[in-house]
Design a protein around this nucleic acid. Structure first.
Length: 329
DNA sequence: AAAACGGGGTA
DNA sequence: TACCCAGTTTT
């Protein structure tokens, strides 16, 4: 009997929906642009609403349509994406735009969307539901957490996906999927937060097993944390007059396809003690200490000279932007 | 099933 | 610090 939960959730959403640049407000009845929905969903993959909010409008202004994006050089797209991380998203975004244009427009089914590059289970369901009004069970980490708490699931999410899926199917059943999805994501972001959930504001608290337990924040249980390995490397600062020598990283792997300072591959292990200028950068699965070494000869390297006063336009990912910042300080 | 894949925000 | 975020792809 999900009807009561659905009504409580949708009522609350209609009163308190966040006003987000890519969002159609609850009750919106006009046409929807699947390009905007798709772009926002890709940007929001593992990236917070606050971060995306500052980038979404600029991106959309530069490429207002999927046709415009498909026609853009990949390097321009990567430079625009710089600082957002997970750069495979930008490469997939470009490939997806070209596929969509070749198909004559976005497909409107979850299954067809799922076949496109960069669109996995979550995004296919979200786009089908939000852009096309299709029924779909949209499950992101917010939905997983809300469901784990509603039912006081005491296994880590990773090992309880089947049960969460079944409970989510039931929760969405018969309701407008796009509104349900956004209602659940707002709830997860503002009330049913990972830490310090605001249960006194929650429209579902009287129906929540984790709330009844007295310790809602303990659901779902977190898997044990793992140690973060160390790596180190060197970047070459090759400056000639007012220009800096930059290279493009290999298309695959870390920072794939991005502009960068040249240098050898990074090595495993703790950095050797050294007084040279270095920057430390923590990635998801390792921490890097990058030593910066001045050179005056780029021979043997494939790259280009970039004006130092326009380095902000070079599209450097944060690691190299910080290294340059340090050298210019 | 697990690892790779970034970066910014927050307590 | 450590954790978290509208996940996807590869191994």
């Amino acid at each position: 009997m999900p009807a009561n939960r659905q009504i409580a959730l949708l009522d609350h959403y209609r009163q308190s929906a966040r006003d987000l640049p890519w969002r159609y407000p609850p009750g919106h009845d006009g046409p929807r642009d699947p390009y905007r929905v798709w772009l926002s969903e890709i940007m929001l993959q593992q990236t917070s609403v606050a971060t995306v909010t500052t980038r979404f409008a600029r991106f959309l202004e530069r490429w207002p349509t999927v046709e415009a994006l498909a026609a853009a050089p990949l390097d321009d797209l990567l430079a625009e994406w710089a600082g957002l991380g997970y750069y495979a998203r930008a490469r997939n975004l470009h490939a997806c735009a070209q596929a969509v244009v070749a198909m004559g427009g976005f497909p409107d089914s979850e299954a067809a969307l799922r076949q496109l590059p960069g669109i996995g289970d979550y995004s296919a369901a979200a786009i089908a539901a939000i852009a096309f009004g299709r029924p779909a069970t949209v499950i992101d980490t917010n939905v997983e957490r809300v469901i784990a708490r509603l039912h006081a699931l005491d296994r880590p999410v990773r090992s309880d996906r089947k049960r969460i899926r079944a409970l989510a199917d039931d929760l969405y059943s018969g309701a407008p999927a796009g509104e349900m999805a956004q209602a659940l994501m707002d709830l997860g972001a503002t009330i049913c937060r990972p830490a310090n959930p605001a249960c006194h504001l929650c429209p579902l608290s009287t129906d929540c097993a984790a709330y009844a337990s007295g310790d809602p924040a303990s659901f779902p249980p977190r898997p044990p944390k793992k140690v973060r390995p160390e790596r180190f490397g060197t970047a070459w600062w090759i400056r000639r007059d007012d220009r800096l020598f930059l290279v493009r990283r290999p298309a695959r792997g870390m920072l794939g396809g991005m502009a960068a300072l040249p240098g050898p591959e990074w090595q495993d292990g703790a950095p050797p003690a050294c007084k040279a200028v270095s920057v430390r950068h923590v990635f998801t699965h390792f921490a890097l200490t990058l030593r910066i070494e001045e050179r005056d000869d780029p021979s043997g390297l494939e790259g280009w000279w970039h004006p130092l006063d326009r380095l902000d336009e070079a599209g450097l990912p944060t690691l190299y932007a910080r290294a340059a910042e340090r050298m210019l300080a």
